[in-house]
Design a protein around this nucleic acid. Structure first.
Lengths: 153, 153
DNA sequence: TATTGTTATACTCTATAACTATA
DNA sequence: TATAGTTATAGAGTATAACAATA
């Protein structure tokens, strides 16, 4: 239940945290695999979906910026952006100040698709909810922003 | 149309939870990619590592059990087990009751390697700790078991 | 010269289908 | 017939290296 009883003043390198990070690592990798299968839109890979999410938050970005944010190499992002463009989900425009760069932004189609995806995700959430109690969900809600921060660190 | 039949418990299907699940999904996928790069042992894939972790917890298992636990198909687990055996990290023995099955267990080498990995993970943890405060870490510790449960649901 | 993005290529991981052997 | 595991093959996704265009 609580590590605090044994570790009242936790430093960040102690065994309790190491155990937590091990659990996190294992769970994140397994959940990642399940998410790949539970994906809401079969025609979009997880990273493509993530790029659309990033564009929805940031408005627009260059391929290089997207590669850094998604932690993939530039050639991989070139391919991902090309696939998204072929599907009509992003638009590519020349960069106003630097002719080497490009500006990627999402289309109205992508916006509509994300809205539709949200409803499908709710259905998946409901099926998971059967196995978790309210306290467990509260813990996930509290940790979600921290996981996001961790992913960006 | 209604999603009511997929959401018998409305408290789990509300917008706040949907937002949390979106955040979780995004963070889990990005963290997964980072973990692939931050991997403690360059010669072991994330799933190979996860299998060793499972064996460390469960003692031993058949290839079929491992495939179900790691959410991969049987042929994938055949390959993973073969790679681990080639590296001297697992041992394969005949199943006592069923000659179709095999029993996979970790070797002493794997045990030593996991101990070494633990130290390396602590170093990675320490570098992350600089970006999180105590409250944030507490939330991660609380959520870790729930994420594990989610991964097994 | 350094940087942004692309092309060409190869690798890793996983899946599906077909097969073998036990049950 | 059904099940556990394997073999053979294909596909998705990513990386590295070499290259082009621009700064």
């Amino acid at each position: 239940m609580s590590y605090a009883k044994y570790m009242p003043d936790l430093s960040h390198g102690d065994p309790a945290d190491a155990a937590a990070v091990n659990a996190l690592r294992s769970a994140v990798m397994r959940l990642g695999r399940r998410l790949k299968h539970q994906r809401v839109d079969e025609s979009l890979s997880p990273t493509e979906m993530s790029v659309l999410g990033t564009l929805a938050r940031c408005g627009s970005a260059t391929p290089g910026e997207l590669a850094r944010k998604e932690h993939v190499q530039p050639p991989s992002m070139t391919r991902i952006v090309a696939l998204l463009e072929a599907k009509g989900l992003v638009r590519l425009e020349p960069h106003p100040d630097d002719r080497r760069q490009k500006v990627v932004s999402q289309t109205e189609t992508a916006e509509a698709m994300l809205e539709e995806s949200r409803r499908k995700r709710n259905a998946w959430l409901a099926s998971l909810a059967e196995g978790l109690d309210e306290d467990e969900w509260a813990k996930l809600r509290a940790a979600a922003p921290v996981l996001e921060k961790l992913a960006h660190l």
